[in-house]
């Protein structure tokens, strides 16, 4: 059923039940996000895509559009909240872009640029979490995990369907875990897929190091904004 919603005073015709974050992208309106992947089930963990819906903040990846919905994206209040949510992830973990293998293809770094973040308003904690190097093909830089849960939900052992990545503990002491036995059943292609699905430099496939020079890195060539608006991610 065709309905009309309003985003930033612009009337948009769309179908009932579509997800707000996709409707926005299809109409050239960029909403930052870190856990959401178009075409995959919504995770709703990072909250970076929060916008104002009928006067209330809501994560746009969780909102099915309804007729007459009024959405605000391009306001200083909404943008500041989105920026704060990106900043919170920078201060919570340890993110050292210049020395990170994922630099240039890291979603968190790219969203930092897109939200005009200069420095986190929250005190940096320089969290030290133990690295996990035991799996043959994958190395886990826990300091960089933002708990988006993409790997937890979308990477499974092909034979049993069991989770390879999981989270232990809770709250601020949550920790990303890798099941070495299952991880060692992955081939290189699967390991790379796990690394690529990670929006930060937490899951790194071991035999890929500094394979892209400055200037040829993913988001240097086409920005994350352009990719999202083209529906590529």
């Amino acid at each position: 059923m065709s309905i009309t919603i309003t985003i930033d005073n612009k009337e948009i015709k769309t179908d009932i039940g579509a997800t707000l974050i996709d409707v926005a992208a299809d109409n050239g309106i960029f909403i930052p996000r870190l856990c959401y992947m178009r075409g995959k089930p919504c995770l709703g963990t990072c909250r970076v895509c929060s916008v104002k819906v009928n006067g209330w903040m809501a994560a746009s990846c969780t909102i099915p559009v309804q007729d007459g919905m009024i959405v605000e994206v391009d306001t200083s209040e909404v943008k500041d909240i989105q920026k704060a949510l990106v900043e919170t992830l920078f201060s919570e973990g340890t993110h050292n872009c210049p020395s990170c293998e994922k630099s240039g293809r890291c979603d968190l770094q790219a969203m930092g640029y897109e939200t005009d973040m200069m420095v986190s308003r929250f005190p940096y904690r320089f969290t030290e979490r133990n690295k996990e190097n035991a799996a043959n093909l994958i190395w886990l830089e826990r300091d960089r995990c933002i708990f988006c849960q993409r790997c937890v939900n979308f990477i499974q052992d092909e034979e049993t369907g069991q989770k390879i990545f999981s989270i232990s503990g809770r709250g601020p002491s949550s920790r990303i875990e890798i099941d070495k036995e299952l991880a060692d059943k992955m081939n290189k292609k699967q390991a790379r897929a796990a690394s690529d699905i990670c929006p930060v430099g937490c899951i790194i496939d071991k035999e890929r190091g500094y394979d892209h020079a400055m200037g040829v890195r993913k988001y240097d060539i086409t920005s994350i904004r352009e990719r999202i608006l083209k529906g590529e991610q």
Binding site: G44, T45, C46, R47, V48, L85, T88, L89, S91, E92, F122, P123, R125, I146, F147, Q149, I167, G169, R170, G171, P172, S173, S174
Partner: peptide, 21 residues
Amino acid sequence: FVDESCGTCSPCRSGNVDLLH
């Protein structure tokens, strides 16, 4: 609240630690 946050979403997981500080 820091103790009882489940840690699934970032504002609650991280933000409450900042408030405690």
